[in-house]
Amino acid sequence: MTVVTSKVCIVGDFAVGKTSVVERFVNSQFSDKYLTTIGVKVDTKEIDLPQRGVQQKLILWDVAGTDRFGDTEFAYLRGASGYVFVADGTRPLTMGTATSLRDRAFEHYGVKPAVLLVNKHDLTGAWDVSEQRLKGLQAQFGSVFVTSAKTGAHVDDALTHLAELIVDRAIADQQ
């Protein structure tokens, strides 16, 4: 099985749960304690993609939350093979931020495989995303997952899907 390493950047607005998503995906853990990320935090996770005959090692760059990219954040995105955009389902504005960040990243580094995670689905009382909005986001991002870092719902699915997109993109580029 071929081993492929890919850089994936996790980006999104402040406190949308980027670090919690990574922690759930990498270590299957969750903490209610909020620790803001300064700069960037790097984790790795290996995923087997047997159908494609590839073992994908994701280098996850958990970039500090921001509503717009500065020079340093742009530097962190350089060379990324894919993006995980994260929004907070209880704060509709964060979805707009995710869209804005996506546009800026693609504008700067080209279009790359990406998924949008609308997170905090466990907070059903505060959930504020309509089905129509989700469809709109689906049209923009191509892949949208309603996730919960707390329960782990769809987190692995989202990251695995992104890994597949990255491999498919690489194969397409080679061809």
Binding site: T5, V40, V42, T44, I59, A75, Y76, R78
Partner: peptide
């Protein structure tokens, strides 16, 4: 522990230093 993470983190630090 993880040479890939070290590599990525060094690059991040490098970027941070260069930008700052």
């Amino acid at each position: 522990k993880d040479s890939d993470a070290v590599s990525a983190m060094f690059t991040a630090i490098q970027d941070f230093v260069k930008e700052s």
